[in-house]
């Protein structure tokens, strides 16, 4: 017998592709987008059919999805879930190729792969008064945490911050679970003019705060952590590290927490904000900048 002729290999490849397709079709409604809402030009809410995850998830959990065969695996927080409808809500901000492609998907479209819930759930407990700080798209992951703390009987004061009015998202949902909401915008187009830390410090000076949660861009979390450290307020921050598998297998998401290397996907994403090396995180987030830019240019001609 001679070696495998090349076209035979092709046939085999073709056959195996067919098998994959067959499998995928059998669960057609899996990870289907059932609802979409645009919060702004850059931020979109997607409700996705994922019944098992809707059942299993807790505040603080996230998922990893892959739009299609060519897509990368990107992590997104589960902002809300509806067990009965079997859906989870994602809030996505366009920052690069994958998030933009996801934002362009519509109800009826299906996401190829979606796995979760990942990460450790937020430690929700009765603490007294909680200061919740959300920046930009970080407001989405903050929502289930605010809801959890409120339901656990805490007083919750929330500070939402963004560059401008149209980037303040989920305000009504957040209000539903907060005793008070303070809005800060960089340009003063809504709420008060100033950074999240300005709003937070006012609250801290005004009343006893027992715990703080901060989620948003790394820089915002860094300065919030510096502030609460000054006042000795225990603070959790949720790291948005670069991820691949989300199961502890690759180490792309490693972060330095209190001098130890931690994997954000399995040890986090929330850590003691006073121990996080934010400068290293910020540096690591830029790790694939050149390559991402190339992918972006590729995708946009």
């Amino acid at each position: 017998m001679a070696r495998v002729p090349p076209d035979f290999t092709k046939t085999l490849l073709f056959l195996t592709c067919q098998i994959r397709l067959k499998n995928k079709n059998s669960d057609l409604t899996m990870y289907q987008i059932v609802e979409k809402e645009s919060f702004s030009e850059k931020v979109v809410k997607l409700v996705v059919h994922a019944p098992r995850i809707a059942r299993a998830r807790k505040p603080g959990h996230f998922i990893i999805l892959r739009i299609d065969e060519q897509g990368e695996r990107i992590p997104l927080t589960i902002a809300q879930a509806d067990k009965n409808a079997g859906t989870i809500t994602l809030v996505v901000q366009k920052v690069g190729v994958s998030s933009t492609r996801l934002c362009e998907m519509n109800p009826g479209d299906s996401i190829l792969d979606l796995v979760g819930p990942l990460g450790k759930a937020t430690h929700i407990h009765q603490a007294g008064t909680i200061l919740a700080c959300g920046g930009g798209v970080g407001i989405a992951p903050l929502l289930p945490i605010v809801e959890g703390f409120k339901k656990a009987g805490n007083r919750v004061v929330t500070v939402l911050a963004a560059r401008s009015k149209d980037l303040i998202i989920l305000e009504d949902e957040i209000r539903q679970w907060s005793d008070e909401v303070i809005i800060m915008t960089d340009d003063g187009s809504y709420g008060n003019k100033g950074l999240v830390t300005t709003g937070a410090e006012e609250v801290i000076n005004r009343e006893q705060i027992d715990e703080c949660v901060a989620i948003g861009p790394a820089v915002m979390m860094k300065f919030t952590a510096l502030l609460t450290k000054k006042y000795n307020i225990p603070t959790q921050a949720s790291l948005n590290a670069v991820m691949v598998d989300g199961t502890g297998m690759c180490g792309a998401c490693r972060a330095n927490v209190g001098g130890e290397t931690k994997f954000t996907c399995i040890d986090g994403p929330e850590f003691d904000a006073h121990k996080i090396d934010f400068d290293e995180l910020i540096q690591r987030l830029g790790g694939y900048m050149a390559e991402e830019k190339e992918a972006w240019e590729q995708a946009n001609g």
Binding site: M249, C250, G251, A252, T261, Q283
Partner: peptide, 20 residues
């Protein structure tokens, strides 16, 4: 779970596990 050596500078960009 990939192991690292825990030597100085190992979390710089451009240093990654073989699994990744």
């Amino acid at each position: 779970l990939p192991r690292f050596m825990n030597i100085p500078g190992e979390n710089y960009n451009g240093i990654l596990s073989s699994n990744e």
